[in-house]
């Protein structure tokens, strides 16, 4: 067996094999250089916060001074906000998906009131800032006698906002399912709701998953806006709170930034895996 294998290795390589190897080597080289450049950029970024004065020829570069003791002391308090940030993001994206699907179906409806409701909702939400919407829910709901815990008011605002934007994704997903698919389902005798449930929706959702992932990543950061109301103790709220209390606003914000960035990197990694898997799927 070994003998056979070694013999095979010794065999001269074909032109195609050689070209393929060169291609692979080139790609590896490129990736290594990108990684190195990332490292250097990161180093420069860290240097910027080193507090040292750097002399480059006749110029002197000032850098930002960071109180590391403060960072170590408050790491735990800010990190505790991660959980809340993730919770509000997950709940909001779930609400947003439901609303987006309903809005997309409404948009495709031929029944005027339903179509109007959908377009009205999307227009109103897209026409006003998210920041304003979040305050609106905290201020307006109590006047209606609806007292929601801070988290839920935030989820409602974020979910409604993202739902309006994501309805476009769902609409594209629904339109991506060809007419032939509906006809095949109809010819089998499926009712419109069976056709939607069994044939159209599964294909539309598959189409929509990658952009939903993008929106989820964006939402983890937009959830910071909810902190402004003071009722949800997520990453941003906690960092602002300790920063103010100890006059170390900048350090606190930098810590929050690191947490947001790390979270985004991890989520993007999973997003990539998901996308590769879907693209290999059966379309």
């Amino acid at each position: 067996m070994n003998l056979l294998l070694s013999k095979k290795d010794d065999a001269p390589k074909t032109q195609a094999e050689l070209l393929y190897e060169i291609q692979i080597r080139k790609e590896r080289h490129f990736r290594a250089n990108v990684a190195l450049s990332w490292f250097i950029l990161l180093l420069i970024l860290v240097m910027l916060f080193s507090g040292q004065k750097i002399n480059i020829g006749p110029f002197q570069l000032k850098t930002i001074h960071i109180d590391t003791a403060f960072i170590f002391n408050n790491m735990g308090f800010i990190a505790a906000g991660l959980q809340e940030t993730i919770r509000i993001s997950v709940l909001s994206i779930l609400l947003a998906m439901i609303l987006a699907l309903l809005a997309a179906l409404g948009r495709l409806s031929t029944f005027p009131p339903v179509y109007a409701l959908s377009t009205f909702y999307v227009s109103l939400i897209r026409g006003t800032p998210l920041y304003l919407q979040i305050f609106f829910f905290f201020l307006a709901l109590p006047q209606l006698g609806i007292i929601l815990p801070g988290l839920w008011a935030g989820v409602l605002a974020l979910g409604l906002n993202y739902g309006a934007y994501m309805s476009e994704i769902f609409r594209a997903g629904l339109s991506s399912v060809g007419k032939g698919q509906r006809e095949a389902a109809m010819a089998l005798g499926m009712t419109p709701s069976q056709t939607m449930r069994r044939v159209v929706l599964p294909q539309a959702l598959r189409f929509a998953i990658p952009p939903i992932g993008n929106d989820f990543i964006a939402m983890t950061k937009d959830s910071a806006l909810v902190s402004a109301t003071g009722f949800v103790h997520e990453l941003m709220w906690r960092s602002v709170k300790v920063g103010r209390a100890e006059f170390h606003n900048l350090e606190a914000l930098i810590m929050a930034a690191i947490f947001y960035w790390m979270m985004t990197i991890i989520l993007s990694y999973f997003q990539n895996i998901l996308e590769t898997r879907l693209s290999k799927g059966d379309r």
Binding site: G178, G180, Q181, E183, A184, A187, L188, G189, M190, Q194, R198, V199, P202, Q203, R206, D282, R283
Partner: peptide, 23 residues
């Protein structure tokens, strides 16, 4: 149909049993 219109998210067997089971 001319364009077959099989359901791409279902296996061959699932395509074929879809009508009898669902409808």
């Amino acid at each position: 149909f001319q364009e077959f219109n099989l359901f791409p998210h279902m296996s061959v067997l699932e395509n074929v049993i879809e009508g009898p089971v669902t409808v």
